[in-house]
Amino acid sequence: MKLFLILLIPLSIALLILGTPLPVEHPVKRHQWQSPEPILPMTFAHLDHVGENCLVCHHNYNDDTGNLLCMNCHVTNSDLWPLLETQFHDLCRDCHEAKKLLNEESGPTRACIDCHLDGELP
């Protein structure tokens, strides 16, 4: 058991630096949409959301907070930036969960890699 744990230390460090050796998709944190710190990529397929009310996400079209896209404010505004992860997790995940529980077609609910991939831009 001691040997196992001793081996686990360099393996963990290698895993942290190099990432998983398995042939799965590897998202890379980087500065995106002028983010002050590197962030994970996010994928969002507009075409999969055509049945939704646009204002659920694009609140700015209705509340006079501008006419830009999500990331233009939520990443660059210093008040909104610290809330980016919580706000987007809550918005996307809660809606996907609600739909899945109703047995409707839904997006990812929990697994990080299902959303954090390069793909269509928000």
């Binding site: 942290l16 050796p21 998709e25 590897h26």
Partner: peptide, 17 residues
């Protein structure tokens, strides 16, 4: 290690930030 190995995005959640 199951999650770190199978979901490559999880590794970013055990780093600073």
């Amino acid at each position: 290690y199951w999650l770190l190995l199978l979901d490559a995005a999880v590794i970013e959640y055990v780093k600073p930030g």
